[in-house]
Design a protein around this nucleic acid. Sequence first.
DNA 1: CCAGCTTTAGTTGTGCACGATGTAATCGTG
DNA 2: CACGATTACATCGTGCACAACTAAAGCTGG
Lengths: 148, 148
Amino acid sequence: MDDRRDSLLLDDQLCFALYAASRAVTGLYRPLLDELGLTYPQYLVLLVLWENGDCPVKDLGAALHLDYGTLSPLLKRLEATGLIRRERRPEDERSVRIALTEQGLALREKARDVPPVIGEAMGLPPEEFDALRAALRKLTSSVTAYLG
Amino acid sequence: MDDRRDSLLLDDQLCFALYAASRAVTGLYRPLLDELGLTYPQYLVLLVLWENGDCPVKDLGAALHLDYGTLSPLLKRLEATGLIRRERRPEDERSVRIALTEQGLALREKARDVPPVIGEAMGLPPEEFDALRAALRKLTSSVTAYLG
DNA sequence: CCAGCTTTAGTTGTGCACGATGTAATCGTG
DNA sequence: CACGATTACATCGTGCACAACTAAAGCTGG
């Protein structure tokens, strides 16, 4: 009855803790990514490309849980800065393949400096880091299962 | 050296787990808040007002970690829907007091149905709920301390 | 008193997020 | 093979977030 999960008090809400933490961490990335000429979602797109190689827009959306309405303009901006190319695939003209350029590939080396700084600022020991990440994944999968 | 915190792999990143969880939870609120005619940030503003009563814009910003650039237009929209009033305070003409209207106050009763549904969908037992919230707060405070 | 500082808020511009809608290419099925 | 359904992506409109800039009100020291 007095379960904090059912309260309307701001500080009882997990959702607010999540929202605040997410924005704080994005703000932590901002100055580092500014030096690379990237925004945070653009950085996430490049993480996927660096890890998995070139792929269609659809796969980026699946990896990042983002739709075309978000990705299409974002990818246009990444193309404008010369980090990626967008090429219609001959086998299937509906599909657009996102390919890293030389510049986009080279940026990976500069990006290697980012995670250590972030880890430092978060100030979490490895066990807490892993536990928090696991809890967040569980939450995301519960919620998406509920919505799906 | 092979600390996952220093990797460039998407799934190793706490930041992505956080980003994905935050958007998933916001998406969980969306259909419920649609029925109240609210967006998620607007709901957070009302939580503060319901809890603490009328207050200047500055206090809302402090409670939610949001700046005027975000709040000013948001509050204008809340005023347009009739849930709040914005009144310059005579004592200090710089300050704008945000006051709940009758409608805004009445909406609280409808909002009481929201948290139980959210808690259900999250599927976390109380201990995990509390632990996750505590971890997120710690993270937020580490990060903001580092940035401040 | 008043020059200069701080506080409070608003405005503008950029870039996400996401729902709704549009379109062209491909696929499936009779 | 025709043709309706599906797929992959783009576009548009709304509403955050946040940086940079403006402006008005209040305070403060000389």
